[in-house]
Design a protein around this nucleic acid. Structure first.
Lengths: 159, 159
DNA sequence: GCAAAGTTGATAAAAATACTCGGGATTAAG
DNA sequence: CTTAATCCCGAGTATTTTTATCAACTTTGC
């Protein structure tokens, strides 16, 4: 039950963006430096965020990324789903197609457990918005400083 | 946010055990056949369950496994934790030792999210007992038949 | 035109996962 | 006491997933 670095870095990165976009489009280079995540990896993460419609990009010189919606409308579930794919403890709760391949046809005790986990987690993550995380991070004073260095253990850092 | 096959197979296996132990110690061979999980893999899973005190073993001919406690006292959290390790979306919620290595010293918005997930999940999983799963599976009639073939996608089956 | 930025696809390295294998120890039954 | 059934344990391996990195390309402001 771990969240991969995609989700962990990505959430940090989009909070960083939310905290800075008042200045206009934010290039990944900036986020990379503040969050100590390689620019190239961030590119991958923001590609996912963009395809999910959470951020929009402005190309060319002085370009960068902006939130595509107000932070109040973006939830942690949106963000983690964009980065890690659907919340599904097991494949059989992912889609009906896959469920059909299962000989139990859904009459399976364990499946009920996976569905319970999925629904519980979705509700929880949907209840927290990016706006709340942004506000909270700003309460601590200089947000950029606080999370300047990796908060995650397996961050290799920018080279 | 996936549960590995250890957790998925293991939960099925211990439900199977709960459903059959009224007959005495159940050898893994039996569970292996009913659940279509290789005996050798089951050995690994039951080693974990035994070390966590959830099951006890009887060695020698006519040996096998028994629950070490009444099913009412065993929760899904106990089972999944035994099989997959502690529920921790990120390392920084795992132990104080690891947290100390984090430059933020815990003042980190994302960490709050991971703690929230952890606590929510633990409470949820602790609220479901093996007794409940057992009862539910028996309501469907012949439990053994119903879950005879893998309910999981990446089960290679017994050779 | 040039430099700053996003876009894309390939690929490589590392880690975790999902098993398999072989031998050893224990014990009930005949 | 022998045999077969069973658990026990440590290695080893194959596969998949994760975590990146790289290079080439496109877009655009100045």
């Amino acid at each position: 039950m771990r969240i991969s670095t995609r989700g962990r870095y990505g959430l940090r990165a989009i909070i960083d963006l939310a905290n800075n976009e008042y200045r206009g489009a934010i290039p990944l280079r900036e986020i990379s430096q503040r969050q100590n995540i390689s620019e190239q990896y961030l590119e991958q993460l923001f590609a996912s965020l963009r395809k999910s419609g959470l951020v929009k990009s402005i190309r060319g010189a002085h370009g960068g990324y902006l939130l595509n919606d107000s932070p109040e409308k973006i939830t942690v579930k949106d963000i983690l789903t964009a980065l890690e794919g659907p919340i599904a403890p097991a494949d059989c709760v992912l889609s009906e197609d896959i469920l059909e391949k299962c000989n139990n046809g859904g009459n399976c005790v364990t499946r009920k457990v996976w569905i319970m986990i999925k629904e519980n987690l979705e509700e929880l993550l949907d209840s927290v918005t990016l706006a709340e995380l942004k506000a909270e991070s700003q309460n601590w004073g200089d947000y950029d400083q606080l999370i300047s260095y990796s908060s995650d253990m397996n961050n290799k850092g920018v080279k």
